[in-house]
């Protein structure tokens, strides 16, 4: 069930590789070669030690809900999709990323719940990364 719109993201030369990977069902994280930090959001330097040497790896796709809100009313592309959930999900690899929680009723979402990555094609050569409750 995906009743949310799938707007195409802004893609820049810096984020092209990240978004290209989503079309293959991969969520790519950056790793700082110099200080071992995981970097989020993608950029050309490490915001911990400022090194330009970054490698990439695919995240596990597992995380937990760090916080969320149920949006009841909006005037944007999501207007017809209310109520829907925007959340910060804390990835197993560390970063807390903004996303939507899908495939469950908004009232069933809770802080701390386990979630798993899914991708929704935007039709623009990439996909939005969202999370659904992890199956027991």
């Amino acid at each position: 069930m995906n009743r949310l719109p799938t707007p195409a993201p802004v893609v820049t030369p810096t984020t092209q590789a990240f978004w290209d990977a989503t079309s293959e069902g991969r969520f790519m994280l950056q790793h700082c070669v110099a200080c071992d930090a995981v970097v989020w959001f993608p950029r050309n330097h490490c915001p911990e030690c400022f090194s330009p040497e970054l490698s990439t790896f695919d995240c596990s796709g597992h995380g937990t809900v760090y916080s969320y809100t149920v949006i009841r009313k909006v005037a944007n592309a999501y207007k017809e999709a209310t109520p829907f959930v925007v959340a910060y999900v804390e990835l197993k690899e560390g970063p807390r990323i903004m996303t939507n929680i899908v495939d469950c009723a908004p009232e069933d979402v809770s802080v701390g719940m386990a979630v798993t990555l899914v991708f929704h094609d935007t039709g623009a050569g990439n996909a939005l990364y969202r999370f659904r409750p992890t199956s027991q």
Binding site: S67, T69, A75, A77, V86, M98
Partner: peptide
């Protein structure tokens, strides 16, 4: 901003949505 692609596609449309995340946590 450089974060735009990662924050503007989820349906957040105003300050209340962002502050709600803080209140919930």
């Amino acid at each position: 901003g450089p974060e735009s692609g990662f924050e503007s596609v989820w349906g957040m449309a105003g300050a209340p949505h962002s502050y709600a995340l803080a209140a919930q946590r």
